[in-house]
Design a protein around this nucleic acid. Sequence first.
DNA 1: AACGAGATGTTATAATGTTTCAAATCTCGT
DNA 2: ACGAGATTTGAAACATTATAACATCTCGTT
Lengths: 163, 163
Amino acid sequence: MSANALPYRPHNHSACVHQALTDARTVCASRQARLTPIRERVLELIWQSHKPLGAYDLLAVLAEDGHNAAPPTVYRALDFLQQNGLVHRIASLNAFTGCTHAGENHTCLFLICRCCRNVLELTAPGVTRALNEVSEAEAFTPEETTIEVAGLCPGCKDGGDHD
Amino acid sequence: MSANALPYRPHNHSACVHQALTDARTVCASRQARLTPIRERVLELIWQSHKPLGAYDLLAVLAEDGHNAAPPTVYRALDFLQQNGLVHRIASLNAFTGCTHAGENHTCLFLICRCCRNVLELTAPGVTRALNEVSEAEAFTPEETTIEVAGLCPGCKDGGDHD
DNA sequence: AACGAGATGTTATAATGTTTCAAATCTCGT
DNA sequence: ACGAGATTTGAAACATTATAACATCTCGTT
Ligand SMILES: [Zn+2]
Ligand SMILES: [Zn+2]
Ligand SMILES: [Zn+2]
Ligand SMILES: [Zn+2]
């Protein structure tokens, strides 16, 4: 099959990483935000796959790097990357994933495979619209929206290429 | 105003609590699930307001009760209550709130006021439908859905009855 | 009484995230 | 180039949230 989104099928993932880093540099340059080595390294690590990583996972890899970092180092880098729309935190996983719409101001949702752990980020105008209608009906002013759908990706549903 | 949902305006909240406990007894009876004193007490505490409580908040109140409980006690009660559709966990807050659709199998969403902390649980067929469409388009099989909207409730937006 | 399943108690530990203050680095105007 | 001020990073301690493992209790059944 080929209509599947990237995380669900083999692809040239180094292109994903390269694109993400390039976008990040562009975004940061345009905002006068400093993509320092630590921040860039954390972003690169997050992009090593489409599976979200926890802060302490990142910390462990940094330790392998020989970089003796403490938790605040990672959390600060993650804060920066979130502020600048480069990564998202997945609340239901306590983990972080690279944003596929770097720099765009967007409301997105995540399809999270409970089997292979890959996450697909999507923007879904229909969902956003429906949510806005609900909020409006309750006179509620939305600011931050978390939409996370856990389930099975196409690959894991039939057969199960668990990776 | 009066179109506002319960959490957003003064109301006879003890009726909320009473209803919740009554529903819980009914649901548990029909399922042969045992609503033990601890479980009922935790449910009652969660329902003391429309603001979600953390597990350790509950633990602290139990301590005041004179009940010297350890974390597993509370987490086990919460697990039970979640299993039986009596409470929800709010992932973005690491906290728990009473379910307003006890026993019904439902996909719900939460409007979370960042100011007064009250949470409104809603079922929104339009949102659910839109999400299903998105999932289907990606050949994704949804199982658990987390929808949490943080923002300002009507009360806090104008004036700010922060409670 | 003996048993077994479910529920609770108890202790320890894991996993995630924050506060605080000091030191290093960068920025920018002079 | 220089130095004041801001930003970033280092480091240690701590806070919060959640689970693992095993012992004990409760209560209905045999
Ligand atoms: Zn990729
Ligand atoms: Zn999968
Ligand atoms: Zn109420
Ligand atoms: Zn409010």
